[in-house]
Amino acid sequence: MTARRAVRAAKADQDQDVEAAAPRAVDEAKRALGERGAVWWTDGSPDLNRHMAKNTPYAHWYSEIGRCFSGGT
Protein backbone atom coordinates (compact mmCIF):
# COMPACT_ATOMS: atom_id res chain seq x y z
CA MET A 1 0.00 0.00 0.00
CA THR A 2 2.94 2.30 0.54
CA ALA A 3 3.77 2.05 -3.16
CA ARG A 4 0.15 2.72 -4.15
CA ARG A 5 0.04 5.78 -1.91
CA ALA A 6 3.25 6.99 -3.55
CA VAL A 7 1.55 6.78 -6.97
CA ARG A 8 -1.39 8.83 -5.69
CA ALA A 9 0.84 11.41 -4.00
CA ALA A 10 3.05 11.78 -7.09
CA LYS A 11 0.00 12.40 -9.27
CA ALA A 12 -1.37 14.94 -6.80
CA ASP A 13 2.01 16.72 -6.62
CA GLN A 14 2.44 16.44 -10.40
CA ASP A 15 5.94 15.07 -9.78
CA GLN A 16 6.72 13.25 -13.02
CA ASP A 17 9.95 11.65 -11.78
CA VAL A 18 8.32 10.13 -8.72
CA GLU A 19 5.21 9.25 -10.72
CA ALA A 20 7.37 7.29 -13.18
CA ALA A 21 9.12 5.36 -10.40
CA ALA A 22 6.08 4.62 -8.24
CA PRO A 23 4.45 2.01 -10.56
CA ARG A 24 7.73 0.10 -10.58
CA ALA A 25 7.56 -0.04 -6.78
CA VAL A 26 3.98 -1.33 -7.00
CA ASP A 27 5.09 -4.01 -9.47
CA GLU A 28 7.99 -5.07 -7.23
CA ALA A 29 5.66 -5.35 -4.23
CA LYS A 30 3.13 -7.41 -6.19
CA ARG A 31 5.86 -9.75 -7.42
CA ALA A 32 7.18 -10.16 -3.86
CA LEU A 33 3.66 -11.05 -2.71
CA GLY A 34 3.25 -13.61 -5.50
CA GLU A 35 0.52 -11.63 -7.26
CA ARG A 36 2.59 -11.29 -10.45
CA GLY A 37 5.23 -13.36 -12.14
CA ALA A 38 5.57 -17.10 -12.17
CA VAL A 39 3.07 -19.10 -10.14
CA TRP A 40 4.30 -20.12 -6.71
CA TRP A 41 2.22 -23.27 -6.34
CA THR A 42 3.38 -26.65 -7.56
CA ASP A 43 0.20 -28.74 -7.75
CA GLY A 44 -0.33 -28.16 -11.48
CA SER A 45 -3.39 -25.93 -11.04
CA PRO A 46 -3.74 -23.28 -13.75
CA ASP A 47 -3.06 -19.61 -13.12
CA LEU A 48 -6.48 -17.95 -13.37
CA ASN A 49 -5.41 -14.52 -12.07
CA ARG A 50 -6.08 -12.70 -15.31
CA HIS A 51 -9.47 -14.29 -15.92
CA MET A 52 -12.88 -13.02 -14.94
CA ALA A 53 -14.42 -15.33 -12.34
CA LYS A 54 -17.39 -16.01 -14.60
CA ASN A 55 -14.98 -17.51 -17.16
CA THR A 56 -13.31 -19.95 -14.76
CA PRO A 57 -14.23 -23.18 -13.00
CA TYR A 58 -15.35 -20.93 -10.14
CA ALA A 59 -18.22 -19.38 -12.12
CA HIS A 60 -21.01 -21.07 -10.15
CA TRP A 61 -19.42 -20.17 -6.80
CA TYR A 62 -18.95 -16.57 -7.95
CA SER A 63 -22.58 -16.26 -9.02
CA GLU A 64 -23.69 -17.50 -5.58
CA ILE A 65 -21.44 -15.00 -3.81
CA GLY A 66 -22.98 -12.17 -5.82
CA ARG A 67 -26.41 -13.17 -4.61
CA CYS A 68 -25.26 -13.13 -0.99
CA PHE A 69 -24.05 -9.55 -1.22
CA SER A 70 -26.99 -8.25 -3.24
CA GLY A 71 -29.57 -9.36 -0.71
CA GLY A 72 -30.78 -12.39 -2.71
CA THR A 73 -31.07 -15.91 -1.38
Score class of each variant (00 low, 15 high):
50 R>C: 03
25 A>C: 13
10 A>C: 02
38 A>D: 12
52 M>D: 13
24 R>K: 12
7 V>H: 05
51 H>E: 15
20 A>N: 01
26 V>H: 02
37 G>Y: 04
7 V>R: 09
65 I>A: 09
40 W>V: 08
7 V>T: 06
53 A>R: 13
28 E>V: 14
10 A>N: 08
43 D>G: 10
36 R>M: 11
69 F>I: 09
28 E>W: 05
53 A>T: 06
20 A>L: 05
69 F>E: 10
49 N>C: 07
24 R>I: 11
7 V>M: 05
56 T>G: 08
50 R>G: 06
51 H>V: 13
18 V>H: 04
36 R>Y: 05
34 G>A: 01
38 A>P: 07
43 D>M: 04
3 A>D: 11
48 L>A: 12
59 A>S: 14
24 R>P: 03
13 D>P: 02
54 K>E: 10
61 W>A: 15
73 T>G: 15
63 S>P: 11
54 K>Y: 07
13 D>W: 01
64 E>H: 06
4 R>Q: 09
60 H>I: 13
30 K>C: 07
44 G>I: 03
35 E>D: 09
54 K>Q: 12
45 S>F: 02
72 G>N: 14
28 E>L: 11
64 E>R: 02
62 Y>W: 05
68 C>D: 11
32 A>I: 01
39 V>L: 02
70 S>T: 09
50 R>E: 05
37 G>P: 05
64 E>A: 04
3 A>V: 11
71 G>L: 00
73 T>P: 15
64 E>Y: 10
14 Q>P: 00
